[in-house]
């Protein structure tokens, strides 16, 4: 199955290229196929929503795109680098530099303040403490949480926690933001705020965003929507343009 989000674009504008990507897990003696020969190109600066029922392979695809897992077969290229050929430690370094993650349950460190949480990815850079603080302040400013910098996650609302998580994902200025059900744990109004923030980041900061969601209203904030089912892209690869 071919599903090319931006089939006609020149290769230089592509950030993500998947060719024949398959992923299978061993469950006992059985081999369970989760993704099957997936082809997909994603343009730099795109905001793509991945939709589909549970078990369709959305999160597995997201894990592959984030370098958290490796495909069983196929070519996975992001920003010109072959992730499928990287070792585990190379993938670790690649993640630190090129990708930011936003999760449904925020996954902040409960013992660290908002600013310390945001600073975490910067510990892997060569920035000085002063430079790190400057970047953290800028990231918190961007998500509108400068006044909550000293607060612990337990002192923040769900929406604020997710904003901190977004700041943490942004602080090292990655090419790609991967969001796994980022509004799944939030009420509608807060979810809309978070989605608007993601939209702003996409439009103003030109961040490439890939978001897994079950929620059609969340998907509406994306530029494009891809549907998955049983480990494959459906609709013969046609991409739905989201309504804005």
């Amino acid at each position: 199955m071919t599903a090319l989000a931006t089939q006609s674009l020149a290769a230089s504008e592509l950030l993500v290229q998947l060719k024949g990507i398959s992923k299978a897990y061993k469950k006992g003696k059985e081999q369970v196929s989760v993704l099957s020969k997936l082809d997909l190109d994603i343009r730099r600066g795109d905001f793509l929503a991945l939709m589909g029922p549970s078990g369709s392979g959305k999160t597995t695809l997201l894990n592959l795109l984030g370098g958290l897992d490796k495909p069983t077969a196929g070519e996975l290229m992001i920003g010109g680098q072959r992730l499928d050929q990287m070792s585990s430690s190379q993938l670790t370094k690649w993640r630190a530099r090129h990708v930011g993650f936003i999760f449904q349950f925020y996954n902040l460190m409960p013992v660290l303040t908002a600013e310390k949480n945001v600073e975490l990815p910067l510990l892997l850079t060569n920035l000085s403490s002063k430079q790190r603080k400057h970047h953290v302040a800028a990231a918190l400013e961007l998500v509108g949480l400068s006044n909550r910098a000293k607060h612990y996650p337990s002192e923040l609302s769900g929406g604020q926690e997710q904003r901190v998580a977004i700041a943490r994902a942004l602080v090292s200025d990655p090419d790609l933001l991967l969001c796994d059900e980022p509004t799944g744990d939030l009420d509608r109004a807060t979810a809309d705020e978070i989605l608007s923030l993601l939209q702003t980041l996409n439009q103003q900061q030109q961040k490439t965003i890939i978001m897994v969601t079950h929620d059609p209203r969340a998907a509406d904030h994306a530029r494009h929507v891809l549907h998955m089912d049983k480990g494959a892209l459906v609709d013969d690869g046609r991409v739905t343009d989201a309504e804005h």
């Binding site: 585990s88 430690s89 993650f101 990815p121």
Partner: peptide
């Protein structure tokens, strides 16, 4: 365990 997994996700080595 999930917090340590997040550290690895962010790019902290094994």
């Amino acid at each position: 365990i999930p917090e340590l997994a997040i550290l690895k996700t962010l790019g902290f080595s094994d």
